[in-house]
Design a protein around this nucleic acid. Structure first.
Lengths: 150, 150
DNA sequence: GTCTCTGCAAAGTCTTTGCAATACG
DNA sequence: CGTATTGCAAAGACTTTGCAGAGAC
């Protein structure tokens, strides 16, 4: 659903121009299955278009944010803000050790607040994040326990 | 629950020393009802102890993180990472416009994933974040609509 | 042709580090 | 007393800005 055409349309409809740089940035963003940082997007972009500057990447991401095409996801750990398209109905599995962030597609329709708890907020969505150790980090923890016991 | 004594105990038990600076930083952190940024903690700290440096605040927060006494909450918007004590059972109400973050105390015990969805993760907790407009920002939006209609 | 966008480099934020002096336990 | 911690200033990481020239529509 976060297809390239939709994002391009979004730019067009808001009077923004579609430059090759922007198109490429959007492509990288939509094809990236993880949640890239600005720097990662930049690195990906310069492979095919070496003269693109970081400023352009940052500018484009910021434009996209104000247009609602991406959101900043979870920045915890290192490396700067991570971006994600399709802020729609999906949730996260977050490794507290290596900071990997994985999408879950599951409908938590039952999650809702009572009017009293809303404190007057007008809710537009919600997201559930599960914290834990990813399989790789579970292994690493085991190894550490073993070596510390020696 | 995130009382000062617990955090101090946490430092002690890990062989850390309790300096007046640290004590003050921990006090500010536990008494702060919102989710302060490092800078906000610093500003609060220098009121009573003007010679404390930012480095000390950052160092202490980092120590606390590795000891598990605080977590980085949601950084979305501006101003840097926000910290929070009691990462326990509570959830968030997040204003997408002014980035205010409010705690909700509600037990979403029904939120769980099937083994297949876990992808091998060992879950230790979960957090639900509701997105929307806080009452103040709803007002601001209304005002904008009115003025743009003229 | 107009007006936005780009690329560069410089500036701005936020955070970390190196090191000598200090002070906790 | 020994060792962790402090404060300072400088460095580092991430992001934004200013401006002249280029390019989309």
């Amino acid at each position: 659903m976060p297809c390239l055409e939709m994002l391009i349309e979004l730019f067009r409809q808001n009077g923004r121009k579609i430059t090759p740089q922007r198109r490429l940035i959007l492509e990288v963003l939509t094809q990236h299955s993880e949640h890239p940082t600005a720097e990662e997007i930049y690195q990906q972009v310069v492979i095919t278009m070496p003269d693109v500057s970081r400023a352009t990447v940052y500018n484009t991401l910021r434009e996209l944010m104000t247009l609602g095409g991406v959101t900043e996801a979870f920045e915890s750990g290192e490396g700067g803000v991570r971006y994600e398209t399709n802020p729609g109905n999906h949730h996260h599995l977050f490794c507290t050790r290596c900071y990997k962030l994985v999408d879950i597609h599951h409908d938590f329709a039952e999650v809702a607040l009572s009017p009293g708890e809303l404190a007057g907020y007008q809710i537009v969505g919600h997201q559930v994040t599960f914290y834990g150790l990813c399989p790789d980090c579970q292994e690493r923890e085991k190894d550490e326990v073993l070596s510390s016991e020696m």
